[in-house]
Design a protein around this nucleic acid. Structure first.
Lengths: 334, 334
DNA sequence: CTGAAAGCGCTAACAA
DNA sequence: TTGTTAGCGCTTTCAG
């Protein structure tokens, strides 16, 4: 610390009390006389005293910090998802008076857990061994945005399966029968689950989904563009398209408009994410909102409880997404 | 820390050396015999010893952490800029073996600087008093992405003025004479500087820029859409458009394509940012690359030097952006 | 309600 | 090359 070295002792001296008393007022311990408290507060203000965080942590045996580690593969940072997570975790840490130590990883080096009380892994892409290592070291760990049902581990995730299902339900509710989808990358859990939920609903309510109506995307705009173009070449064009992300939905809409089609009159489109960009296109995008921010806050809460050993075993939570109705879906026009 | 309490002393005992020796091998002090080093390393491994970070920091009198504070106004997180900054700062912190404690602020509460050795303020939007407070407290501070020439303060920023200038130069180099611009929010420094550099070049090389060719945007896609539509209503349409961000450029292109125009044959478009989204549109966007990542790394370096008192006075650096040629600019077609 | 004193785990003179 | 020892600044029994 580059601060001048005013310690608790200087404050005690000036206030003519013991350092214990000073410590007490710092920590809001009630058993301090008003008179002494006032004196100490005066001294603290006069001396501009700031407690030394490291000393506090050492004495308390706590780090007062949680780590947030995110996979660093290209692109993750340009997703709405990552940003909301960071915001949410940051906010929650604030309310828990914890430092948030942020860490981007390539998945290789083990995460240093000496400086934190617990770690939140945002998704686990190729870095499961980091999770294992942290757990082996005895550090409380939580995975966010990924369900890991085969392991005894804390997680908080979105129910992407349900997300896909409600989209199918919503679209068939309008009377659509030719419903296509541009999926997310199917090797990701989100992509896989969204598609499965979607497909299974259609199978039991719409006679299934023909293969030419399913194109695997990878969450990139380019993949959506290609997929949309392919759909338009079909003899029987779909009347509705479900894109597994807003970015893809927006790109699909761009393609449709370029070809002179109308959205939603000619083709309905629905996305997934509730990315703010939804509002800024030519038509406000109907989509599925994932409670990302809340997920992050919830994650911190669970982890903090785990750190304080307030949990029994591990806690696994799934949050439910919901449809946000805007302007890009309507009944199929005859 | 929830770890079992294996301290340096346990290691010393097992290795049959003093704790000093253990400390020395932890810190890679060369003056340790190979034999002892080996013994200590064995003990560390066997005991799974992890040094207590708080104790180290206390003893060393450092926090070994730098703060990154970002304004939390809606939207900033959806900008490419913010993300690259976080990535860059995170990466640089890693190499300096510093924790990066991340903080989103609404500009009101003073930033807690007890737990860090220095603070990087990413931009300063409505939170200059936080900067002042931190400095008053004696904490080394650096501002990133904002030139503050009227203050004795460290900063590392992009030369947005130059960025605007090279765009104008590039476009006139093709022979364009009817050049329009959708500016960024002019109350932001970036928006203002980009426009000024652009305008001044045109004034001295193209006879200036007519008012109907300047529309103030606010970096949102919507503002770009409106602006592009307005340009198309003009009797003398521009043959080139400079948008002060890639997002806006992309939206402008979308409008042009929707109206059946070709890019770049009918209208050239150039953006600013080198957002990855440039590559994913219908045409790869020509743009201006800001060295955001390097700026962030540079910022950490300067700040760390400041913390170690290696700087004389304050250091103010400006990095130069450059044009990235892709497919959306060409000479005007007769 | 207050204070003395024993640590928390580690680093860094200083001696040897 | 090694070890002794005095802190780093704060929390927390334990007596009073």
């Amino acid at each position: 610390m580059p601060k001048k070295k005013i310690s608790i002792e200087d404050v005690a001296q000036r206030a003519k009390v013991s350092i214990t008393t000073v410590s007490r007022v710092i920590n809001n311990v009630p058993t301090v006389s008003d008179k002494n408290r006032a004196k100490v507060e005066e001294a603290i203000a006069a001396l501009k005293f700031k407690p030394n965080v490291s000393a506090q942590r050492l004495a308390r045996g706590v780090n007062n910090a949680i780590g947030l580690v995110m996979p660093g593969y290209p692109g993750i940072f340009h997703s709405y998802y990552a940003i909301e997570l960071i915001r949410g975790v940051g906010h929650a840490c604030e309310t828990h008076r914890m430092d948030m130590v942020f860490h981007i990883t390539d998945g290789n080096n083990p995460i240093n857990s000496n400086n934190v009380d617990g770690i939140i892994f945002a998704d686990i892409i190729e870095n499961r061994k980091q999770v294992d290592a942290a757990m082996a070291g005895g550090t409380p760990v939580l995975i966010i945005n990924n369900r890991v049902d085969d392991m005894e581990i804390n997680y908080v995730a979105i129910d992407n399966f349900e997300g896909g299902r409600i989209v199918a339900e919503y679209l068939t509710g309008f009377g659509h029968e030719r419903i296509a989808t541009i999926t997310g990358k199917l090797t990701t859990q989100s992509g896989h689950h969204r598609f499965e939920g979607f497909k299974q609903y259609l199978e039991s309510h719409n006679g299934g989904i023909p293969p030419q109506y399913v194109i695997e995307g990878d969450y990139s705009r380019r993949s959506a563009r290609l997929a949309a173009e392919d759909f338009l070449k079909l003899d029987e064009r779909p009347t509705a398209i479900f894109a597994a992300s807003d970015d893809m939905a927006l790109e699909a809409i761009a393609v449709l408009l370029e070809k002179g089609l109308r959205v939603p009159e000619d083709i309905s489109v629905i996305g997934f994410d509730d990315n703010p960009a939804c509002l800024f296109g030519p038509v406000a995008l109907t989509t599925v909102r994932q409670p990302l921010f809340q997920m992050a806050e919830q994650a911190v809460k669970v982890l903090v409880d785990a750190i304080n050993k307030k949990n029994e075993g591990h806690v696994q939570q799934v949050l439910t997404p919901e449809i946000v109705v805007r302007e890009t879906c309507c009944p199929p026009q005859k």
